[in-house]
Design a protein around this nucleic acid. Structure first.
Lengths: 197, 197
DNA sequence: ACCTGAACACCGTTCAAGT
DNA sequence: ACCTGAACACCGTTCAAGT
């Protein structure tokens, strides 16, 4: 609790050689740019190259794509968890749940294809991305519990359901695209949330 | 209207050399198997090989992946359109719309990744898959119109919205996966449809 | 301990050469 | 007219060789 979670906190074991740490951070930074530009399927070779390291170095630090996605999302997810804690103390638990779902969907829309990567990782025992997203499901469970307590939600729905639905919402908003690049998320969310009251 | 739409109806121009037609049909058949096995991202090289043709032959008949998906879905979509026509004559337009949404979602779940391919193709001018899915959006519009007429739907929602949502539903059901391989579609659909009443 | 980059098996796509 | 398959530029991944 509290304190600052920096990118380095996600690094393995304890002591890291200076050059190793430098490479690690360069890879994460470049990866963020590449994912933003080409989606979560950006070429890992290209990321290694742009970070000035060989492909082997990338694979040493991040044995698979999920590991790299996870590392590149650490800060963003930390902010999300802060929001979750704040929303847990809100008066209107129903509105808090709405806001949380919207924040989850926006997070899943950080990069093209991220909603899919996250949802897939969720049922993958060995995925670090799935593991860390589990904490988001937990936060969702706490908010759902409160909303139920206040009678704001009566439908038979699980936290896992809601988490997956926030992803499907992100997926849908990306593809609804009615001409101009409007933000479809709030509209679609409202439609969905009416269903669980 | 009526009559039978066969796979061959999707073939280009009119006269087709016997060997060309044989290859065309072999590719479509094998593609269906490959998509079922590996999802819509199955290797095209592998499909060509398994169909006993060179990669060039596959590309001659299907310039891109969407063309092949479209060809492999012709029969399935024809059945869907028949259902749409039948539902248009149902008494309860609200229930008809529910059934239509479920059928759309099941169609999008024919193969892994198909919901994504379809949604993406929808905003692609030159995609034959997107073009043919446009007819499904049209059918959705007719059913939505009737449901509105009967007062079964009052929410501000377009046919395009509903079509995209059926895809996001398919997406979500594939990933909700609560342990056993249950069919999550009806449950999630019910949640969603409550939102547009 | 960590990095490098060649190497491998693959992929989508094109196109000159065949029939 | 249509097919073939070599060729190209890529990709993810591994691993022996370096420092």
């Amino acid at each position: 609790m509290g304190g600052t979670v920096s990118v380095e906190a996600a690094a393995p074991s304890r002591p890291m050689r200076a050059d190793a740490r430098r490479n690690y951070e360069a890879i994460v930074r470049v990866a963020g740019e590449a994912f933003a530009e080409h989606g979560t399927h950006a070429s890992l070779d290209d990321i290694a190259c742009r970070a000035g390291v060989g492909p082997g170095t990338l694979y040493r630090h991040f044995p698979n794509r999920d590991c790299l996605l996870e590392a590149a999302l650490v800060e963003s997810r930390y902010k999300l968890q802060e929001l979750g804690a704040r929303l847990l103390e809100a008066d209107d638990a129903g509105a808090a749940l709405d806001e949380w779902m919207l924040a989850l969907a926006r997070h899943a829309n950080t990069w093209d294809g991220l909603a899919d990567s996250i949802a897939q990782s969720l049922s993958n025992e060995k995925s670090p991305l799935g593991a860390s997203c589990g904490t988001l499901v937990d936060a969702t469970a706490r908010l759902l519990e409160q909303a139920r307590h206040q009678g704001a939600v009566t439908a038979d729905v699980t936290a896992r359901d809601l988490f997956v639905m926030s992803g499907s919402l992100a997926w849908a908003a990306d593809r609804a695209a009615r001409g101009s690049g409007e933000d479809e998320l709030p509209r679609l969310l409202a439609l969905l949330m009416r269903g669980i009251r």
